[in-house]
């Protein structure tokens, strides 16, 4: 167990009088890969939006690298937070529709020094530097047309994950990453994430309704319902927890 990477305190968010998130105290990133589960409408996605400051907090604080000198994330913008190393993959498919797969990955890899108004001739050099990394992603994840555009919903989802991984995040938030992916692609994503967690010290938080993914991949699971963190523990503890069973696992069809 490590020091938490993200510490949430008294975090609250309401939409039109309805409290969506109300988390008193939550430490994230103490284990390599953590899961966030709970019924629909529990506030899981909103919690991630609050962490990356896609959505404004009503109250409370979210501190990144809480152990050392902390950064209060709610004072930074979405793009600054991404540059700090806190990155989120999207639940709903998001794509740059005019960019090919390669261009999309290159865009994510491009450091600011190449993205200047006056650097008109830097693409060749950037391609030389970045192309091997692009090729590595393309050979690891199989696209039906690697030279063209992401075609299916699954490929777009995969490309979204690759774009986030290309940023070399310190903390990766994954919002239902495996929805729409084939089983073998899901396995590859999880394998790569396990490796990055082990070798590069990346922390991951996964929201997932496919509970097999959670039980297999996560070392620690947070259970959320009605905007609150109800309980947390190892996958085995959560599976056996009576609250989880009543509020979530016992649901018909779950």
């Amino acid at each position: 167990m490590q020091e938490p990477k993200i510490q949430l305190s008294n975090v609250r968010k309401a939409y039109g009088g309805r409290t969506v998130v109300d988390v008193e105290n939550l430490a994230l990133g103490r284990h390599g890969i953590e899961g966030l589960i709970g019924p629909n409408g529990a506030g899981k996605s909103t919690l991630m939006s609050l962490i990356t400051h896609k959505v404004n907090l009503d109250h409370g604080s979210i501190v990144f690298n809480a152990g050392t000198e902390g950064v209060v994330l709610s004072e930074w913008s979405l793009d600054e937070i991404a540059r700090l190393g806190v990155v989120r993959t999207n639940q709903i498919i998001q794509d740059f529709e005019s960019l090919s797969i390669v261009d999309s990955i290159l865009l994510s890899l491009a450091p600011p020094r190449y993205e200047k108004l006056y650097s008109l001739f830097s693409d060749e050099q950037m391609q030389r530097e970045m192309r091997p990394a692009v090729e590595e992603y393309l050979s690891y994840f199989q696209f039906s047309d690697p030279a063209g555009h992401a075609l299916s919903a699954g490929e777009k989802k995969l490309l979204d994950i690759i774009r986030c991984l290309a940023l070399k995040p310190k903390f990766l938030l994954m919002d239902e990453p495996t929805t729409g992916l084939h089983q073998d692609q899901t396995d590859r994503v999880l394998e790569l994430i396990r490796r990055l967690t082990r070798d590069d010290g990346m922390s991951v938080l996964i929201i997932e309704h496919d509970l097999d993914v959670i039980w297999n991949a996560c070392e620690h699971v947070h259970f959320m319902a009605e905007g609150q963190i109800m309980t947390q523990g190892s996958p085995a503890e959560i599976r056996g927890n009576s609250t989880v069973e009543i509020k979530y696992l016992g649901e018909p069809g779950a």
């Binding site: 990356t52 896609k54 913008s77 979405l78 793009d79 991404a82 540059r83 990155v87 989120r88 999207n90 998001q94 794509d95 740059f96 529709e97 005019s98 960019l99 999309s104 865009l107 994510s108 993205e115 774009r163 986030c164 940023l167």
Partner: peptide, 15 residues
């Protein structure tokens, strides 16, 4: 082009 296509997504990858 990325900003034109999807500005929020571009911000999400740190631009």
């Amino acid at each position: 082009a990325g900003i034109r296509d999807n500005e929020v997504l571009a911000r999400g990858i740190g631009k």
